[in-house]
Design a protein around this nucleic acid. Structure first.
Length: 565
RNA sequence: CGGGGCGUAGCUCAGCCCGGCUAGAGCGCUUGUUUUGGGAGCAAGAAGUCGGAGGUUCGAAUCCUCUCGCCCCGACCA
């Protein structure tokens, strides 16, 4: 490709809309342009990278026996009502205004529909079906360029089995394929156990890339024993508190202007492990009081597992109405008509301090068994940095990360509601057992750039690079230089080398070098007077900045060796 | 959906508080010319309904109301 007649719009300045490195560079290097919030066009250079990523994904999916589909993005809403997911997705799903269609946010229902209509027998299983296509989700807040878009490319695959061992095998195949995909893409990633959220099912793992700037997920990891888990489900071994031998009589005490656990601990000279914080949620419009030890943070994801229905933080104004006190003074003693749940860490403890449901008063010497009617205890706290690991007691780390891929064992949830069954060996109708496995294609690109760039631009590795070689002619008014560069260009093209050739006239060398570094193709070939007169060409490696001189006649061999190495 | 910020030339921004000349700068773009190894010099030029609508005023980029868009934090989110 010759830049003189190509669309390669680079930017010297950083558009204000971009905050994180990958977004800035994708805009500056002419890979993408925004159409609207969370909606991006891939320009020719960016699309080349996207296609390379897709090809790697495709090859690895095909290797594990995957078969590629092309599925409709426009779906009749009825099929989504069968699984009750119109409601589950809520505002996240795009609805077509003048027809009863939706824009598909994912494709379990469509896959399940095809399976139901066409698969009859266990003999036809297992199947792995995948697609690499655009998905639509009305993200309430798109951000970080292509990292969280309303329209984005996703590889999703679905495994179909009718026995559990089959599902396990399909799941493991995907796990291995994903490791290969992300390694081939040159990413440093790690794997954690995760919550399956609105997808349904139980077992699930996420493939994450550490990123302080663009990360939206938090992973809890142990560097000693390799325990790794999304914070949504992570557990730890916090210090255990024992019940004291004697439960003293409860007593209301005056605690003027004490609102927080820190203030209370200071005021009473009491360790936080003897203070219990009360937080209130609304579950199906009814208040639920949740007791946490000290400053422990409630984990909503964990809480959701124990409470059915929508959970939501309660408005401050409602608190006075229900409890007769404000936020900092609530407690579980003498509460009627409010369900109480407590974190496992507090189980059956005594000698505790809680709010008195009366502003500026707390109650001391509470015995949770004697003085409260707690419905149940459960692990609902959020793990904190440096707490001991559940397996090996080493201090845990918390890492901010971007989610690249997620694999789930879905089970029979969709097959059951859509009545997708096959006959098993005994001639019995059994529901198809599904697995679901996603990869965010644009996220691979953005994560790669997050990990591979410097102040001058992107540093592609050859597998994802939009071109193999960036050819630059420096002295454009010298016909000999232009001819030499043109010959190199043609020779490389004839040998299937992808070359981008900066043949622009009347542009200073500096501009060409800056653009080349910004785009970040691994090898730059620089054709200039000073070297051509000796029959030489300069070569610069983008990653190391290293330069060397080659004989013109050796270039082809050198480049081909480099590409195929 | 709550909180905050921003919207002026293709890009980055000044001007707005405190209304008043023909709305500015740098970069980019066009033409000419000189340059040609790290985003060039000189000369000339094109480019804007100041996001949109309404209002106040003799007069609005500037003040008021509404509205649309973008970014950030939170909520939410496979």
């Amino acid at each position: 490709m010759k830049i003189s007649n190509a669309f390669f719009p680079t930017l010297k300045e950083i558009p204000t809309e971009a905050q994180i490195k990958s977004h800035k560079l994708m805009l500056r290097a002419g890979l993408i342009r925004m159409l609207s919030s969370g909606i991006y066009s891939f320009l020719p250079i960016g699309y080349r990278v996207l296609k390379k990523v897709c090809q790697i994904v495709r090859e690895e999916m095909d290797t594990i026996g995957g078969q590629e589909f092309h599925l409709p993005a426009l779906n009749p809403i009825e099929i989504w009502e069968e699984t009750n997911r119109v409601e589950a997705f809520g505002d996240t799903m795009f609805h077509v205004k003048n027809r009863n269609y939706i824009l598909a946010p994912t494709h379990e229902e469509i896959i399940c529909n095809i399976a139901k209509n066409n698969l009859k027998s266990y003999k036809e299983l297992p199947q792995i079906w995948y697609q690499i296509q655009t998905k639509f989700r009305n993200e309430p807040r798109p951000r970080s360029g292509v990292l969280r878009g309303r329209e984005f490319t996703m590889k999703d695959s679905y495994s179909l089995d009718c026995i559990l061992e089959g599902l396990n095998k399909s799941y493991d195949l995907h796990s291995e394929a994903y490791k290969k995909i992300f390694s081939r893409c040159g990413l440093k990633f790690f794997i954690v156990g995760a919550s399956s959220g609105a997808m349904g099912g139980n077992n699930s793992q996420e493939f994450l890339v550490e990123s302080k700037e663009g990360g939206e997920d938090f992973a809890v990891v142990c560097e000693n024993c390799n325990y790794a888990s999304n914070i949504e489900i992570a557990t730890s071994n916090p210090q255990k508190i024992e019940r004291e031998k004697i439960s003293k009589t409860i007593e209301e005490i005056f605690t003027p202007n004490i609102k927080t656990i820190n203030q209370l601990s200071e005021f009473l000279k009491t360790d936080k492990s003897h203070l219990a914080k009360s937080v209130v949620y609304k579950v199906d419009e009814k208040p639920v009081l949740i007791l946490m030890m000290g400053n422990d943070k409630l984990n909503e994801e964990k809480l959701k597992k124990y409470l059915h229905g929508e959970i939501e933080k309660i408005e401050d104004e409602k608190l006075v109405e229900i409890f007769g006190a404000d936020g900092g003074s609530l407690g579980p003693v003498n509460l009627k008509n409010v369900k109480i749940i407590a974190d496992k860490r507090l189980e059956n403890l005594n000698q505790l301090v809680c709010g008195a449901n009366k502003n500026d008063f707390h109650i001391v010497n509470i015995d949770l068994i004697r003085d409260t009617s707690i419905e149940f205890y459960a692990d609902i706290r959020t793990v904190e940095e440096n707490e001991p690991c559940v397996n090996c007691s080493s201090p845990l780390k918390i890492i901010t990360a971007i989610e690249l891929g997620h694999i789930f064992k879905l089970g029979t949830k969709y097959a059951t509601s859509m009545n997708a069954t096959v006959l098993n060996e005994e001639g019995k109708q059994v529901p198809i057992i599904m697995g679901s496995y996603g990869i965010g294609i644009e996220r691979i690109i953005a994560c790669f750039i997050e990990q591979h760039s410097d102040e001058d631009g992107i540093i592609w590795e050859k597998k994802l690079s939009p071109f193999d070689v960036h050819l630059i002619s420096v002295n454009t008014d010298n016909q000999n230089i232009m001819n030499t560069a043109e010959n190199i260009y043609n020779e490389l093209k004839e040998n299937q080398v992808d070359v981008i050739y900066d043949n622009r006239l009347n542009i200073t060398a500096g501009v060409k070098f800056k653009d080349a570094d910004l785009l970040g193709v691994p090898i730059q070939l620089i054709v200039s007077e000073r070297n051509v007169k000796n029959g030489n060409i300069e070569i610069k490696f983008r990653n190391s900045g290293e330069r060397s001189i080659l004989k013109i006649e050796d270039i082809k061999t050198f480049i081909l060796d480099f590409i195929h190495k």
